[in-house]
Structure formats: C-alpha cells, structure tokens
Design a binder for these strands. Sequence first.
DNA 1: TAGATTGTTAATCGATTAACAATC
DNA 2: TAGATTGTTAATCGATTAACAATC
Lengths: 205, 205
Amino acid sequence: MPQKFVPAIVIARLPLYLRTLGFLAREDKRVTSSQELAERLGLTPAQIRKDLSYFGEFGKQGTGYDIAFLEKQLRQILKIDRVWEVFLVGVGDLGRALAHYRGFQENGFRLIALFDNAPSKIGTSIGAIAIQDVKEMPRVVREKKLQIAILAVPADAAQSVADELVRAGVRAILNYAPVTLNVPPKVKVYSIEPVAGLQGMTYYL
Amino acid sequence: MPQKFVPAIVIARLPLYLRTLGFLAREDKRVTSSQELAERLGLTPAQIRKDLSYFGEFGKQGTGYDIAFLEKQLRQILKIDRVWEVFLVGVGDLGRALAHYRGFQENGFRLIALFDNAPSKIGTSIGAIAIQDVKEMPRVVREKKLQIAILAVPADAAQSVADELVRAGVRAILNYAPVTLNVPPKVKVYSIEPVAGLQGMTYYL
DNA sequence: TAGATTGTTAATCGATTAACAATC
DNA sequence: TAGATTGTTAATCGATTAACAATC
C-alpha cells in the first residue's frame, strides 16, 4: 500500500489526539466526535477529520469514533504499539532528571543505557542503569540496534555528539541542548526548547 | 507606530535567530548574512530576511547584518532586554530539576517563587527559595505582579491549576504537564512535549 | 424517519520562496 | 566599478476551513 505523503505537522498532532482519547477513555466515554476532540484540543473539527483521513476511515457517520478503536489505530500508525529502547547521552543535572522521569517508560520508551564522558560518573549507576563511557556509545548502539537517542549534553558539545549518534546509526534524537542540530534528512530531531518558548511568549506581554 | 500583525510562527523563530547570533559572536564574527544564518538554522535566506522585515531594516546591502546590533534589536523586539521574574508550580522530581536549571537564570528569567500543595514540602527550600503553599499563589502573584508561570504539576491537576493561574493574572505559562491547556486567548501557553516528540519521530522509523 | 456526524472536495487563507531592483 | 546582499514584491506552495453528499 503506497502511503500518500503525510505532512509532518499532521504527524505531530497525532500524539495529541491520542493523548486526548486517553483522557476521554478515563472518563468512561466509549465514543467521541471530531467536534469533541476539537474542543479539547483547541482545533477545528474539520482539521481533525482531515488529519485522520490521511490514514483511513476510522469513524461512523452519525456516531463518531470508537475511542478504543481509534487509539489502537493511532498507536499503530505512530508505531508506538510496541516498546522502543532509548538511551541517554549526557548525565548532568538535566540528564539525571530525565533518567528518573517516568513518563518515557510509561509511554513505552524504555531507557536502557546512559553515557557520559566524565570519569567521575562512568561506572556509577542511576537506578539499575550503569553510566558508560560515551566512547562506548557507537559500539553499544550498533550492538543493540538502538535508533532513538535522548541528547542532554552541554550546548557546545551537542553538535559533535549528534554527529557521532548519526554515524552510529541513530535515526531519532530528542534534543535537550539549546542548539539547532544539523543532521541528514533521514534523521529526525525533536528539540525541547523551554528558553525559546519563554522568549517567544514575552513578546506578547 | 501601529505594528503590523506578525504571525506567531515568525515570533517563534526569533529566539532561534538570536541564539545563532550568540554562537556567531562567540566565534568572534562581527557580521553575518541571511545566507549564513539560514545555513546554521536549516532555513532559507529569504525566510530570514522576510521574518526580520516585519520589524524593520536591520541589514546593509552588500554587507549583511551587524551581529551585535541585530542581537540587540531582537532582544528589544522579544522584550527580553530586561529580567523577567518567573515562578514555578509543582515541585515534584521534574519541578525540582527545573528549579535547579541554570538556563532560565542565564537567559534573564529569574525564578523567585515555588509553590506546591504537599505539606511535607511546604516550608522547605530549594537553593534560596522557599516552597510555599499553592493556596498562597494568587496572593503572591498579584502582589509581585508576576506574569510568567512554569507549570510542573501532575497531568490531572494541570488544568485546574492553570485556571487558577489565569485568574491570578498570569499571562504566559510554560507548561510541562502532558495536557492541552485551555486558556483564554490573552494567555500564552508554550508546552514542553518530550513524549509527543518521541511519538512523532517513531512514525518515521 | 430525523438528526448527527463522517470523509472529502473545493475554496480560502496563510506561509514560504524566487526573483530582482536598490544600494552598500 | 564589480560583487555581494539586502528588503520587498509577486508567485508558489501548502495547510486550514467551509460546505455538503453520504450514511449511520
């Protein structure tokens, strides 16, 4: 089935749809509508129907969408109907907090390796996971076929570490370093930008 | 001067331009071009020139942009040519890490208050900042005229706390809770979405 | 059946890009 | 002057929305 091209911005909304379906399910709802989802998400019903239509027909006229069914479909589409192994590079304050964050685990992203370059940290552990020398990273990534990295190194190291990640075969980087990473198009980057976020909001104050 | 409407997506790019100018300055460059900025940022030169043109003429034909000058202009436009006081609600693991994060401070966002609802935390301190009862939040926010909140409470409390923030007069929320907040249009929300970010990337794996 | 809501088309809206005169 | 690069216009591209036939 030659999948029609789906804009990245549509893909980016699917996790939000999925999350909202989860909330509705926990409210013991069985069925929802593009109208209800749109209200919760601050979008238009048309946009939600259009987005879903890239992937198939998931609703029923007059009724709406079966929540459990649509959740399952979205999980399949996003390929999160499985557990993904992820690893973290950079175990500073931020990296340490990320290593403890349960949200990844809870959503099927299992942290299985930690890397840092500080001799004082290498060999120590966080929870059950040992911190390894970042020099070992390429070998471990290849051996375990890891595709997803969480990058939490200082800004001035981020690009060179990202280059290493790409060379080692990583295909997705969750970037916490305040830099714009340059990577080949086959590698996806999602950057966490709290400071840029704040700076964008002060404009409106 | 009746400012022309500037698309939010343009505003969102300005902090990235500013950051890149900072990197160039630290490389001892004095002048840059839309071409050079575009390469660093993975954008087109035309887009950068167009974005800047919403606010004035900052370059010189044949030469490009004076880095220090453009930095100063962007800081003024974004209103980050001053220190903003911010406060944090929710001192769990994540909130604790955010309270220690130096990136806010370094970029002119001074954390001046912490709130939580757990009796065991209230009265204790992080660094020099005491954790206060979240019930005190509206009073403190009004007294100090705080406009910017960092929200790091559990997902199921986020909307009701956000409602409180809005009632207290907060105008900008940096949201770390994995929920879509519903707030009036005068209030800006920037959400940090690591899990959604990962879920969007697995689609491409 | 009547009412509700989907999936899709076409129109609209908005953002990006190419091109180029102006000019440093 | 010649080369470089801006600021801006117009064209293009892409995303959102309105509208509605289909149908549950």
